[in-house]
Design a binder for these strands. Structure first.
Lengths: 331, 331
DNA sequence: CGTTAGCACTCGGTATCCTCGATTGCCAAG
DNA sequence: CTTGGCAATCGAGGATACCGAGTGCTAACG
């Protein structure tokens, strides 16, 4: 749909604009890029590209900048199959080499890693607890009328939630429930659990039920880590854009559904208005699913200005999600 | 040191500037405030106040704005003993009424609450795990060479950390270590623990030692929750100030020591450069310790522009820290 | 002697105007 | 179809002038 020369010109505009954030003019393209053609010709082509919606002029007598559509074409057809530079590879490698310990901590650090590598805000949606193998379950009394149920998962994750218990419930009943819970849950997953088998004792059953119920709720609210929010202040000059974006990023709910939505639609990049979150219309989001054994357990992504470095972001996000998936699969 | 009229004028300037963010002139004061005196007199007084370092003129022929010293005098001598408005009282009450469940979640929400109430960034430094009573301890194997140690505390907190184990270590040894750990720790605190008693079995002892060591480390890195960072974008017009502040806020380490330092010095407000963190010199920090049974378990605070509403911030932070302390004391 | 009115002065902010340069669109020639 | 040339456009940046808020000073006042 776009002949080769237009393609080359569009590509050059995008590259240049990403690098400089300045509207780029025809002469610049004619001179610098590989298209061996005069500025006048470039001008003509750019006029067409503008008509077709790939470019806009901020004002007459300024150069052109890419539209969302322009970026879209760029990432779909032009972005060189992502190569991450060697330094990045090394850093990611070192990171996952050293990564240890608690799941949440690792995910948190992963978002920082992505920020460091891409200089954009980063989002990590942790795996839902649903799918992980339960290695241990217990109920611990905290006070006369509260107890906490603790589940340890094979991937190093530990979830807990407080449940209410009756003051009159003796410790022995709690202990029995704990044992029963452990027996029922260990080795399985929360997701595959249909309902808790009964032990006959009403009090014990009641506690087990509420424990499982609580854990179901907990395992549903995703762990989400947003890192590098301060980079958006670096990405935009307009302070009101910064405000809007930061404010939106703080609403975890919005961020989660934003990323989920993009991943669910099978996309890896959402450019500007494509993601439908109006306050973020100056931003693009690059995501990748975290896949373990064919299962989609979470997502990682970065969020930056529409004029972000897509090839690098795509490659980096891909690499990190892969390594993270592999890492999660190990345990 | 400041006669009554100067005091009144300073107070009026601070109030006005906090409200409008605009330099305030003598005529304004003469007209609006209670000082029944002409603008010329006010001018004279203001000139003195400037010499003494309480006020500055951004430029000749502009009104005056308070200096850090001016704010300091204001909060020390002029701020009306903090009254929170009724709506706030109600909101805080409702919040702690409804607060339940996991400690980390509650602390996180507390920082959001503070942000909502003061429209400033909020910091909550969670209690170190040191002091809480241990209700349960166990070791769970995750993989041939990793296990996680889980501690449940009386306040609803659950800490866990992954430790390395030898592949050759049989499950029975782990189980023994788990039992021994539970016996040793339950009912006590990490802080009061000197060293783990031996059971004679070398392998078991080794695991217990590394488990306790890991938990000691974990219990030392404070839980810190920073909420409402996006409000700093609302507080400053200069985008580079926003950048600096946000960037600083993202460095948990800096935030923690900042707050700790202020609390340790027995202060409740640090104004501008007083806290010594240079990139935050346009900000003030209002803090209050979380006290439970006379023990200082953590801190809450808000961070905003030096021209923040000190009386309200002080009162709100105080109220929240009190309620939080009371809440933590319950369990 | 403290207070006040009056006044000259200062200086930042805003508006206006102009110039400069980058860039475009178009046209006519190659 | 491409290209060189050229007039036209328009924002950015700089200079200028004006306005108004606010000050400091001085002289008068009670």
């Amino acid at each position: 749909m776009l002949d080769e020369r237009k393609t080359a010109i569009l590509s050059a505009v995008v590259h240049e604009y990403i690098a400089t954030a300045l509207p780029v003019g025809s002469s610049h393209i004619a001179r610098a890029s590989g298209v061996g053609v005069s500025s006048a010709t470039v001008r003509n082509e750019m006029a067409v590209l503008e008509q077709e919606g790939y470019l806009v002029q901020p004002h007459t007598s300024a150069g052109r900048i890419p539209t969302d559509k322009g970026y879209r074409f760029f990432v779909d057809h032009l972005a060189a199959p992502g190569r991450v530079d060697e330094a990045t590879t090394r850093q990611v490698g070192a990171f996952f080499e050293a990564a240890h310990g608690r799941l949440e901590e690792m995910l948190h650090q992963t978002s920082d890693l992505l920020t460091k590598l891409t200089h954009n805000a980063a989002v990590v949606l942790g795996p839902k607890a649903d799918a992980a193998t339960i290695r241990s379950a217990q109920i611990v009394r905290l006070s006369p009328n509260a107890a906490t149920v603790v589940l340890v998962f094979g991937n190093g994750n530990v979830e807990n939630e407080v449940i209410a218990v009756d003051e009159t419930t003796p410790d022995t009943v709690l202990a029995a429930a704990s044992v029963h819970l452990a027996r029922t849950l260990t080795g399985g997953t929360l997701g595959a659990l249909d309902l808790v088998s009964s032990v006959g004792d009403e009090a014990v059953d009641a506690i087990c039920t509420s424990a499982v119920e609580a854990m179901r709720v907990v395992s549903n609210d995703a762990h989400v880590y947003v890192g590098g929010a301060s980079t958006v202040a670096d990405s935009f000059d307009a302070v009101d854009v910064v405000r809007q974006v930061l404010h939106t990023l703080e609403q975890q709910f919005v961020v989660v559904s934003l990323v989920r939505d993009i991943v669910d639609r099978g996309m890896s990049v959402a450019i500007g208005v494509e993601h439908g979150v109006e306050p973020l219309s100056a931003c693009s989001v690059v995501v990748a699913p975290i896949v373990v054994d064919g299962e989609h357990l979470g997502s990682v992504g970065v969020l930056g200005p529409t004029r972000m470095n897509y090839p690098q972001a795509l490659a980096t996000v891909d690499m990190v999600s892969n390594r993270l998936g592999r890492r999660l699969g190990e345990s």
